[in-house]
């Protein structure tokens, strides 16, 4: 897959079909990959595909001028489709290099499984349904789902639907939605007061670094409401009240565009379970309006469209 990607990417640049290639190269730390954005065809030699290509590259599309060849896993492709729906990128300006995704490995889960820091591990290899970890000269085997990000276990679209070049055998979706909803189900069994207290606690840790917003491909506003000063909607000091308002409003603003890709949760430095918000919003939107973000590029964006009769039970 990697070889094919390098060839295709190189050819795209050589034939002047794109101005840029966005993909992944090895990161500076073990078991990491880092985004590679280049116009130089020689750089394509560094492109990789492995279980650590965690970033949602669609995030870079709105900041780049020109035609782009972009490496996309299923989730990334949905974010791209969503950007197309919103006229944020033109379909003809991008070439989607589709990666049929086996799921991404969550290093935090691995660390917990073997009770070691990632730096102490010698190797992690993924096979079809298991992951083998080499540590202290020993080999340890785990079922694949023990090691993947929750959002990968619940992935509804491992292989992009929308693409130009397919880099491998398509993989059928086999989402285990329960895994994703566990936390949410538990929360729903509690009283409103308990739930509010739960989020209050979580957001008292938020340092308002805005990593969640910046990593989110659906958050593309030039000026975010949190930076407005007339009026000042939220205080810049990270108090839980304003942190919570920021995140709630962010979730509402990206409703119908958030694909529950899990980037916000992954990048949050204080481990706030943000997917327990994004997943719920994703489900609310689906339940009320039968709308799944980023699935169909011809579909009207959620918030610009309506049906004559819907959600009327909420109105007096």
């Amino acid at each position: 897959m990697e070889q094919k990607l390098r060839q295709e990417a190189k050819a795209l640049l050589e034939q002047n079909k794109v101005d840029w290639i966005i993909g992944f190269e090895p990161g500076s730390l073990k078991f990491t990959a880092t985004p590679l954005i280049t116009r130089d065809k020689n750089d394509t030699e560094r492109l990789i595909i492995n279980p650590f290509i965690v970033n949602n590259l669609a995030d870079f599309l709105t900041g780049i001028k020109g035609r782009v060849g972009i490496v996309a896993k299923g989730c990334d492709s949905r974010s791209i489709v969503s950007l197309i729906q919103d006229n944020k990128v033109a379909r003809e300006d991008i070439v989607i290099l589709a990666v049929p995704c086996l799921g991404l490995i969550d290093l935090a889960k691995i660390e917990r499984l073997v009770d070691k820091d990632r730096d102490e591990l010698d190797d992690i290899t993924r096979e079809e349904d298991k992951v083998i970890i080499k540590v202290d000269g020993q080999k340890k085997e785990f079922a694949i789902n023990q090691t993947l990000f929750d959002h990968c276990i619940a992935c509804e679209l491992p292989t992009p639907q929308e693409y130009d070049i397919l880099l491998g055998e398509p993989r059928p979706p086999a989402p285990e939605l329960e895994v994703s909803g566990q936390n949410i189900e538990k929360l729903k069994e509690t009283t409103p007061g308990e739930r509010w207290e739960f989020w209050q606690n979580e957001f008292s840790r938020c340092i308002r670094c805005y990593a969640c917003r910046n990593a989110c491909p659906a958050c593309f506003c030039q000026r975010c409401f949190v930076e407005e000063t007339e009026p000042q909607w939220v205080m810049p000091v990270p108090r839980w009240q304003d942190n919570l308002i920021f995140q709630v409003v962010r979730n509402i603003h990206v409703a119908g565009r958030c694909t529950d890709c899990g980037e916000c949760e992954r990048v949050c430095p204080v481990n706030i379970p943000l997917r327990s918000l994004t997943r719920e919003m994703y489900d609310i939107v689906d339940e009320l309006f039968q709308f799944k973000s980023g699935m169909d590029k011809e579909a009207q964006p959620l918030m610009t469209h309506y049906e004559q009769e819907e959600a009327e039970d909420l109105f007096r």
């Binding site: 009320l288 959620l302 918030m303 819907e310 959600a311 909420l314």
Partner: peptide
Amino acid sequence: RRRIAITKKFLEY
């Protein structure tokens, strides 16, 4: 209507 509906449901959650 769409916006208020998701706001209400989400805040309820």
